[in-house]
Design a protein around this nucleic acid. Structure first.
Lengths: 156, 156
DNA sequence: TAGGTGTAGTTCGAATTCGAACCAAAGGGA
DNA sequence: TCCCTTTGGTTCGAATTCGAACTACACCTA
């Protein structure tokens, strides 16, 4: 208990840079999506995931896992999207309890309309700033982090 | 308007890995701090910033900038911390409008008590997963992102 | 020194998020 | 076939966040 390994100068620099960058990036994305499409980043992510899924449909739990939200948080956002007409709910045929979130035509259209602006932001504020080497390293690193977090769930 | 440069396979992999990892990491940190110290990550960051500042005090605006929060968000959190006795407010001697957030003895003690557990999480879920090269790249990348975001404020 | 512009923080209302508690259906023995 | 545990989603309440509007003070200029 006595020996805490503190972060040295370089480690601290990495951590603070990461914190600032990730918060700023999130804020900017949020702002851009809200202004241009009236969507939250969370909502956009849901639409994007559904669009990539076969049949434009996913089980709520899978979706929650994919977008990294709590179950209740996903329920709320799918409710919002449903009210906007971008998503519908269907009960899962194979499991009466299950619910499928389904992308509607309007949802697909909204995504198509919104994606270019969003991608542009992600590009200019992250992707295009990186050398190929850096992009590769970043992917490797983030995957390690994700794996570490998904493996050792402390309570969830 | 016709030609959107979409993300290619590798770029998309980097982006999705980043999104997942950053959300998961944030959630875990939040959970650990809440459980062990009853603090939000935002609150911890405020205490840490104050602790690092000369005299344990900072102007509200500087603090908001440092922790990347909105002015109103910072007002709220400093209010919370004040209620917990970890921070006090003083009016700035040189500028009657200004407010200084000041770390109290209890605040310093709380931080001291809390820091080891927090650092441990940051280490095991991020820092210790990286090779020295990767840490260096990560720092460079995040600084580029931060600079890009701080330079081109679209509205803020 | 009076007026106008800009800056520092706070207040207010709306939206979002989470976890805990809850309900319903599935699945697996005895 | 009848519990009993597990799993899938929703509901509810509390906390947090943001932006817009607002107040008060500072600074510059005529």
């Amino acid at each position: 208990m006595t020996g805490t390994r503190w972060l040295d100068e370089h480690e601290m620099a990495a951590w603070t840079a990461y914190l600032a960058a990730s918060h700023l990036l999130e804020r900017r994305i949020e702002e851009q999506l809200k202004a241009e499409a009236g969507l939250t980043h969370a909502q956009y992510e849901i639409l994007a995931r559904l669009s990539a899924a076969p049949g434009g449909r996913l089980r709520m739990t899978e979706l929650a896992h994919g977008v990294v939200a709590s179950k209740s948080g996903l329920t709320y956002q799918v409710g919002r999207l449903e009210a906007m007409g971008l998503v519908t709910r269907e009960t899962c045929p194979s499991d009466e309890r299950g619910v499928l979130a389904v992308l509607t035509g309007a949802g697909a259209a909204c995504l198509e309309r919104t994606a270019p602006g969003h991608v542009a932001v992600v590009r200019t504020l992250l992707i295009d700033l990186l050398e190929p080497r850096e992009l590769e390293t970043m992917t490797r690193v983030m995957r390690k982090v994700e794996a570490a977090l998904r493996d050792a769930p402390p309570s969830r």
